[in-house]
Simulated scan of single mutants.
Amino acid sequence: MSLPPLTSIEIDNYRSIRRLHLPVGALNVFVGRNGTGKTNLYRALSLLQQAAFGRITRAIAEEGGIESVLWAGDRRRGPVRLALSARLGDLSYAIAIGLPVKGSDAALPLEPLVKEEKLVLHTGKRQVALMERSGPSAWLRAADGNRLTYANELLGSETALFAFRDGARFPEVDIVRRSLADWRFYHAFRTDEASALRRPSLALTTSTLASDGADLAAVFATLTEVRGDARDLFTAVEDAFPGTRLEIAVESAQAEIAMRYPDLHRAFAAHELSDGTLGYLALMGALMSYRLPAFIALNEPEASLHPDLLAPLARVIAKACERTQVWIVTHSRAFADHLVREAGAVPRTIFKDGAETWIEGLRITGGFAED
């Protein structure tokens, strides 16, 4: 069963984001200068995904704790909560994170806790609650329509989205969990000498590129050996590096890649390639793999690329948008212009209004003015 598309998101009280509610389409491009908070959009989505793995509170702790991720501007009195939500087809999932209440919550001091979760089915103008969680307790509507209550069964560090994994009894919970888990986030592939991109991959059929690009050669080998058709990949390489040929080899238990340049007598293996070339190949692996994830987020993919590679990258992204949704944050207006020409993008400008990150033309209720 195909996964439902992401149609909108809401972010409340996350770092420089006070409140944003925005629609999501096939290609979403956000442009902003350094310090405007554009990366916080990317991080907020990445954090929301962790709810599907039951790791959202750990991810917050790894970012420095709840105080480091909460809205950084002036606050009203009373508890402040980080709230994230996503609309996936006719389902919407929301989660709120806060600090423990002394004497009430079973938690360590200053530990980030899941306070609330909610899953709703939208049927026309009607909304049907399928799951509601408050503190340690939750109720869920089963597939047969019965409402099942689970009192004091959840720790504050857990999510109900991950804890209730019975797809037969709670199919909508399963759909949302699988949808979020399928998202992929690609940010600044390592290209130094110790980078996994420079080493061979295990020769295993690999449908989707790992977040660190460690299985890039296996992703390319899957196109040539399993799909038996890598013409789009080779065409894209020729587009970006005229006269150059990508070579993919599978020997014994390893898959390797190399680039053969015109007028040179040997191919250059991955460990010999420039940082820009290797990073570009990794982006191709993310956007042209055998099975693309339901949603791909790229954070400043143009970084370290030569300007001549921006138009070819925009064409690769345009092709990927035929198979998935793509979310891009960039500080490069030139790259955004290429995405307009090659992929029909409508770039959105991110700016700071005082301490608050905002998006030009975005209405408070969601949607853009011109829409």
Rank of each mutant, 00 (worst) to 15 (best):
A163I: 01
G285V: 00
I97A: 10
E300I: 00
I175V: 04
L155C: 11
I364N: 15
T205A: 10
A314D: 02
P112G: 14
L233G: 03
L180I: 01
I95S: 03
G276F: 09
Q254Y: 08
A210C: 08
P171Q: 04
N146F: 15
W183C: 03
G145Q: 10
F53L: 09
L119E: 01
A255P: 15
D12G: 04
R75V: 10
P109L: 05
C321F: 07
Y186K: 02
R245S: 06
A255I: 04
D215K: 04
D263W: 09
R245V: 06
L84R: 01
L281V: 00
V101N: 06
L91P: 00
V31G: 00
A217H: 02
L154S: 00
K38P: 00
R58E: 15
P100K: 02
H122Y: 11
V173Q: 02
G285A: 08
M259F: 06
A249D: 11
F220Q: 00
Y42D: 04
A217D: 08
V340N: 05
L216A: 10
I257P: 14
V326E: 06
P301E: 04
F30E: 02
R147D: 13
G65V: 11
L281C: 01
F234L: 13
F30P: 00
D12P: 04
I175T: 07
F351H: 09
L121C: 07
T357R: 06
W183T: 03
A267R: 01
R81D: 09
V250L: 05
S134C: 12
A311R: 14
